[in-house]
Design a protein around this nucleic acid. Sequence first.
DNA 1: ACTTCGACCTGTTGGC
DNA 2: TGCCAACAGGTCGAAG
Length: 280
Amino acid sequence: MPELPEVEVVRQGILPYVKNQLVLNVIIRHTHLRFPIPQQLKEILTGQPIQEILRRGKYLLFLFPHGVLILHLGMSGSLRVLSQVTLPKKHDHVDILLSSHYCVRYTDPRRFGAILWTDKNYLHHPLLSSLGPEPLSSHLTTRYLMAKARNKKTPIKSFLMNSQIIVGVGNIYANEALYMANIHPLTLAGEVTKEQWQNLCHIIKSVLRKAIKQGGTTLKDFVKSDGQPGYFKQRLLVYGKAGTPCVKCRTTLKEIRITQRTTVFCPHCQKYQSRDKRVT
DNA sequence: ACTTCGACCTGTTGGC
DNA sequence: TGCCAACAGGTCGAAG
């Protein structure tokens, strides 16, 4: 369940259980993720303290004195803290046992996720070095987005989902943000107006913040139980709602595909605009 | 240089 | 009920 907000919720949820705890053991049951898990991970981590967990985009960064564990949840990954080590299920690929007697368990049916080791200069790692700014930081500005979008012929939705432009906006939040900003998802990035960028920049930040806040209320359950369903689902306005009425104008929401990802929008609220055309 | 597409995986769902 | 195609919260690297 890896949207930026959920990754952040995971980070905040597990941090109290792992911060400053020593790794007692690492059990790897399946090394074949998006990239192979380093063979020596157990030897690298055992006896070392987890000093901090940071997040960069959708990557979680476990800081150790001698390096950094990079962890990505892919499409289907999850991390849980177990107070008792239960019998592993089919897709429970990695357990990290801690001196607090908690166990961090990594589960990922599709195995699009990743667990990698790098040195303390983690920002130089190839997976992290070319990422765009954090949407919730002051580095994401209207000015920045406009500059990046200049002359770009890619649809605004694909632009928003490009992690080199901006991190953390996945399919759900790209759909939601464009709906809230009344921008047709096929609008070329280079044709979005300054006013639209201002609005969109604000909306991206606010929707991600709200989702994190709502995730916060399930933290307790998340840690104790085996994974709650994404519950901000009930707050979504368009994602997964094609064929139902727009909450603003009651027009039936339409579904299209943009670069192989399902896209939902309101044909009335999000009219396609370009210099001289106006189409739905 | 820019944009799209295929690939990586397993599980679930919906149509026939 | 079974079978099969399509699709699912991501993203890298090749192809166009």
